[in-house]
Design a protein around this nucleic acid. Structure first.
Lengths: 155, 155
DNA sequence: GTACAACCTCAAGCTAACTTGAGGTCAAGA
DNA sequence: TCTTGACCTCAAGTTAGCTTGAGGTTGTAC
């Protein structure tokens, strides 16, 4: 390291567990910002470690890179993020997580009902979330199921 | 419908909410089986509705198509699955779901600790699941983080 | 007996999130 | 100065889960 306060991409990779290519990719996506050395190599501030750590955690929680970018964009670009900056993000993540937990608990409870009858019928158990499926962009089922009450009688 | 007990791919699409192309794709993957009409068109038994419904629910729960195929392969091919056959699958799904809920609750509780200090440091909060990341195939971080205790002191 | 929606088979395209490879440059130690 | 590992860019490849399109056939209703 030429400048002790700046990290090379390799340093950052070792510190975060990410691959060098992944960090370059994140850089291109704007998740982390790098300054360049005189020779054109990336140099990162230490706060990049935390940004990337956050990205890893958020991915675990099921966020897409686009969503993670949005969260990170709430951090100040000019100054090093403070404890309070990170607290705000963490709080929002907790809410997201909690919402997902509630949804999964609902699914589980509905599944419990299904196990009893062995039916697994969508109309009676409503084991899927229409809102979610409708909101889904890209590949996947495009429209929702209407009335299917009779479909599960005789199969 | 020529044969009242068999469904065309369009019928199945309307009944499940899946697109015709998705059903063809699932057929090619072996998730559902079709017999062919004299002219070569697919004809499905009514039990295909339930298989596909199950696939949709399982996707909601985060299973990949490969995993769903594995679950569905426990169903008898020769006879129409019974209530008990489906109960067995539902039970396993409940277990998977419960395990995921527990994991997410753990994440939430760890996040709670992080919110207090605003640190979001991986070493202290252990907010990610090493086992999961290591198990991941394909793209993504390939190795795990070692000791990073000093990395979060001064950023 | 003909119209025409619905079906068929490939092959190729798409998004996410990266990796891999080719061909070339930088930087730090001996 | 020279070596060599680390770094650079850009293009193309990868997996999952489908969709889209081209070009052609089926089946049913009139």
């Amino acid at each position: 390291m030429t400048d002790p306060v700046l990290l090379t991409i390799g340093d950052l990779a070792r510190r975060t567990g990410l691959s060098v290519s992944a960090i370059r990719f994140y850089d291109s996506r704007g998740l982390v910002a790098a300054v360049r050395s005189s020779g054109g190599q990336r140099r990162f501030e230490r706060s990049a470690i935390r940004r990337l750590s956050f990205a890893l955690i958020a991915q675990q929680m099921g966020l897409t890179l686009t969503e993670i970018e949005a969260e990170l964009s709430s951090l100040p670009l000019s100054r090093t993020p403070t404890r309070e900056d990170w607290q705000a993000i963490s709080g929002r993540m907790r809410e997201r997580l909690q919402a997902r937990i509630v949804r999964m608990e609902q699914m589980r409870d509905r599944l419990d009902g299904c196990i009893g009858c062995g039916c697994l019928s969508l109309d009676r158990c409503a084991l899927y979330n229409p809102g979610d499926r409708a909101a889904r962009a890209g590949p996947g089922p495009r429209f929702l199921m209407g009335d299917r009450a009779a479909d599960f009688e005789a199969d």
